[in-house]
Amino acid sequence: MDITVNGEPRRIESPLTVQQLLSSLNLNTNGGLAVLLNGEVARRANWPKIVLQPDDALEIVRATVGG
Protein backbone atom coordinates (compact mmCIF):
# COMPACT_ATOMS: atom_id res chain seq x y z
CA MET A 1 0.00 0.00 0.00
CA ASP A 2 1.31 3.43 -0.91
CA ILE A 3 1.17 6.40 1.44
CA THR A 4 3.02 9.70 1.75
CA VAL A 5 5.10 10.54 4.81
CA ASN A 6 6.52 14.05 5.14
CA GLY A 7 6.16 14.62 1.43
CA GLU A 8 7.90 11.37 0.38
CA PRO A 9 6.11 8.36 -1.11
CA ARG A 10 6.43 5.24 1.05
CA ARG A 11 5.24 1.65 0.60
CA ILE A 12 3.93 -0.04 3.76
CA GLU A 13 2.49 -3.39 4.80
CA SER A 14 -1.19 -3.23 5.59
CA PRO A 15 -2.98 -3.17 7.89
CA LEU A 16 -0.83 -0.73 9.84
CA THR A 17 -1.84 1.76 12.51
CA VAL A 18 -0.31 5.21 12.95
CA GLN A 19 1.34 3.93 16.14
CA GLN A 20 2.87 0.96 14.27
CA LEU A 21 4.09 3.20 11.46
CA LEU A 22 5.85 5.51 13.93
CA SER A 23 7.52 2.51 15.59
CA SER A 24 8.60 1.11 12.22
CA LEU A 25 10.24 4.48 11.49
CA ASN A 26 12.20 4.16 14.77
CA LEU A 27 10.45 7.19 16.23
CA ASN A 28 10.09 7.44 19.98
CA THR A 29 6.35 7.77 20.48
CA ASN A 30 6.53 8.64 24.17
CA GLY A 31 6.57 12.38 23.67
CA GLY A 32 7.47 15.36 21.57
CA LEU A 33 5.83 14.14 18.36
CA ALA A 34 2.65 15.18 16.60
CA VAL A 35 0.93 13.77 13.54
CA LEU A 36 -1.17 15.40 10.86
CA LEU A 37 -3.19 12.87 8.86
CA ASN A 38 -4.73 14.15 5.63
CA GLY A 39 -4.74 17.70 6.99
CA GLU A 40 -6.26 16.84 10.38
CA VAL A 41 -4.39 16.51 13.67
CA ALA A 42 -4.38 12.85 14.80
CA ARG A 43 -4.51 12.89 18.59
CA ARG A 44 -1.90 10.78 20.35
CA ALA A 45 -4.56 8.70 22.11
CA ASN A 46 -5.94 7.66 18.74
CA TRP A 47 -2.65 6.54 17.14
CA PRO A 48 -3.12 2.86 18.07
CA LYS A 49 -6.67 2.90 16.67
CA ILE A 50 -6.18 4.67 13.34
CA VAL A 51 -5.55 2.16 10.53
CA LEU A 52 -3.79 3.74 7.56
CA GLN A 53 -5.59 3.75 4.22
CA PRO A 54 -4.14 3.83 0.67
CA ASP A 55 -2.95 7.30 -0.39
CA ASP A 56 -3.03 8.65 3.15
CA ALA A 57 -0.72 11.64 3.62
CA LEU A 58 1.00 12.04 6.98
CA GLU A 59 3.06 14.84 8.40
CA ILE A 60 5.12 13.74 11.39
CA VAL A 61 6.50 16.72 13.29
CA ARG A 62 8.41 17.62 16.43
CA ALA A 63 9.73 20.78 18.02
CA THR A 64 13.04 22.00 16.72
CA VAL A 65 15.16 25.12 17.04
CA GLY A 66 13.16 28.31 16.55
CA GLY A 67 13.06 31.99 17.38
Binding site: V5, N6, G7, E8, L25, N26, L27, L33, A34, E59, I60, V61, R62, A63, T64, V65, G66, G67
Partner: peptide, 12 residues
Protein backbone atom coordinates in the same frame (compact mmCIF):
# COMPACT_ATOMS: atom_id res chain seq x y z
CA UNK B 1 10.95 29.44 21.84
CA UNK B 2 10.91 26.47 19.48
CA UNK B 3 9.56 25.85 15.97
CA UNK B 4 7.49 22.92 14.70
CA UNK B 5 8.98 21.09 11.73
CA UNK B 6 8.92 17.70 10.02
CA UNK B 7 10.89 14.95 11.73
CA UNK B 8 14.06 13.99 9.87
CA UNK B 9 13.22 10.40 8.95
CA UNK B 10 16.82 9.74 7.92
CA UNK B 11 17.92 10.45 11.49
CA UNK B 12 14.87 9.65 13.63
Amino acid sequence: TVAIRRVNLDDP
